[in-house]
Structure formats: structure tokens, C-alpha cells
Write a protein that binds this DNA or RNA. Structure first.
Lengths: 166, 166
DNA sequence: CATTTTGTTCAGTATTGACTGAACGATCCG
DNA sequence: CGGATCGTTCAGTCAATACTGAACAAAATG
């Protein structure tokens, strides 16, 4: 495997591990990100020097998180994986889910805790996380706008290029 | 310990554990949040049924993250801890730091990766995380505004109450 | 239907890391 | 200076879990 790719894969492995995922999940994600191709399960296992079992488990976990995508190829029985079109939005959505749980916990605490000051803090935490969720929606929208705009610029660039080429 | 407090503490323990912290750190944070008081290290260890060593280590970790605060009391040699005034902002700041690292990783990858498509993805990831950091600053500002406004409303309410009482 | 290929499940292993008890160091008090 | 009280450090233990190899299930192919 290419030197730069390998380095990137290992860094993503550590980053993802810090976020609470298994290391190999991070490697798979990093590798798919770096190459931007589709790979079969066995190819992934081979390239990342992991067992088929581990590749299977972790690929399905990443698919669950919406970070990668399982694709089927006509006339091929194998599973192929590639990175999701916009994995970052998916990650935010997962985070939003966690925050929703926290909102629920804090809402309950703000009513049940014995000390008024504690209830106050819990209520504050609830408000904060609710704000977090809302702002996250706004952020995703802005991100989409940014991507669309970038794509438009690229398309325009490509068009002008073909124009000069013709 | 109160039933509701204990339940909240355990929930925070699991939440924090999912975020990658030790379970006891979550318990300490949850307990300080629920009671909104200052406790000595030994009190924390006792109430949470943990060793002094563990309480010490985890309290310092939480302090590092800016989620709790170590306070010294005049005439007392012990360390006391209480929850930070705005722990949620601190958590966001820590997250921002991680995203900064990721921006750096992606920036490098977007130049070094061999495949153009991979470089493109890395560049996209870099843009996304940069956006994340910026929007997070905006979010913190909005949060401050919200808090200030809430505090003003509370002050007004307290004022009118004292007015009716007098 | 047997064989091959592919993905998943599962028991076992190994590694990580959280937690503890005890030793240590530092600081205060008589 | 002892003695006492804290906080921290560290070696050791324990539990959780990532990972593997092998067995298994499913599906296609000849």
C-alpha cells in the first residue's frame, strides 16, 4: 500500500478509536476515504491485514453509522463497500441522536432532582443540548449549500475547459 | 444518596463513558452537576464508592477538560471541586480542538494522497471540519446570548417578587 | 446434488485500560 | 522536628472488548 495512504489510514484509525470506535473500523473508513473506490470485503481484509470476520463486523458497523455504503454489483455475489457520498453529515446525525438522549435525561433530572440548584443546572443543560441540535440542523443546511456551490463552480470550470478544448 | 441523584449519576456515567471518558469521571461530573455544591476529594470518593486514587485522577481529568473546577478554601488544606460555571461551552472547546487536529490531517492528506479522488475527499473533509469549527464559535455566542437573556429574565422576576413582598 | 464461494456467528485469546491499595511526597500543626 | 493529613504516583489486578480462526449458513455454479 502507498506510503501516504498508509499513514492517513493509521491516523484515521487513531482518530476513530478516540471517538469510541474499534481501530479497524477507522482503518476501513480511512482507506475507503483515501482511495474513493469500492472494495470487496476480502480485499479490505487483505489490504488492512485483518481477518475477514473483523472486516465484516466493522464494515457493518460503519454502514450502520451511515459512514460507508454497501453496494452490490451485477453478476457478482460479493459485497462491496465504498465511502458514503457525504459521511460527515451522517456523523452529525448520529451525534444529534446522542444529544437527543441527553436532552431527555436532563429534562427528567430537571424535574426529579432534590436540590433546586441541581434542577436548575439540569434545565440549563437541557436548553443547551436542544440548542445544539437545532444549530446542527442549520449547520447541515449551510454545509449542503456550500457543497452545491462548490459543485456548481466545478461544473462551470469543467464546462469552460471543454469549451476551450473544443 | 438520594434515589433520583443516584439514577442521574449513573446515567451520566454511561453517557460520559460512551464519549470515551472513564466511568467514574462521568459519575463525578454527574454528582457535582446534580448537587451543585463543592466537595472535597475524599467526600467524592466516599459518596461515589471509589478509591481516593481514582477520584483524584478523574477529577483532574475533568478539570483538564474544563468541566469542573478545583477550588481552594481559606484555612483548609484540602482540594474541593465544583462544576464549572458553563461546562458545556468547555466541552465544545475541547471538541473544537479535536476538529482542528482533523483539519490538519485532512489538509495534509489532500496534498499527499496519490489518487485525485482521494485528495478531493480529503479536501472536502477539511472544508467540512473548518466549517464545523466556525459554526461552533457562532453557536457558543448564541448560547451566551441565550444565557444572558435568561439571567436577565430571572433577575427581573426576582426584582418584581421582592417588590410585591415589600 | 456436490462443490465452491462468500458472509456471519461464535468461542477463545490477547490487549487495553480502568480501578485499587499501598507507598510516597508535600504541607501543615504541635 | 515528629506526627498527621492530603494528594499523587505506581505496580498489580481485574474486567471489558477488539480481534482471530474455525465452524456454519446461504447461495450460486457446474
Amino acid at each position: 500500500m502507498d506510503q501516504a495512504v498508509q499513514q492517513f489510514v493509521e491516523r484515521m484509525a487513531l482518530i476513530c478509536e478516540k471517538e469510541g470506535m474499534p481501530r479497524i473500523a477507522g482503518r476501513i473508513f480511512g482507506y475507503l476515504l483515501a482511495t474513493d473506490q469500492t472494495f470487496s470485503l476480502e480485499e479490505l481484509a487483505e489490504r488492512l491485514q485483518a481477518s475477514k470476520a473483523s472486516a465484516s463486523t466493522n464494515a457493518r458497523m460503519l454502514e450502520q453509522f451511515g459512514m460507508i455504503q454497501r453496494v452490490s454489483v451485477l453478476g457478482d455475489r460479493r459485497d462491496f463497500y465504498r465511502v458514503q457520498d457525504d459521511p460527515w453529515e451522517q456523523m452529525l446525525r448520529v451525534a444529534q441522536g446522542r444529544w437527543r438522549d441527553m436532552v431527555h435525561v436532563f429534562a427528567e433530572a430537571s424535574q426529579r432532582l432534590p436540590e433546586p440548584a441541581g434542577r436548575e443546572r439540569a434545565a440549563q443543560a437541557e436548553v443547551f443540548h436542544a440548542l445544539l441540535i437545532r444549530e446542527c440542523d442549520a449547520l447541515i443546511e449551510r454545509w449542503h449549500a456550500l457543497r452545491a456551490e462548490e459543485r456548481a463552480a466545478q461544473a462551470a470550470g469543467a464546462a469552460s475547459e471543454t469549451a476551450t478544448n473544443s
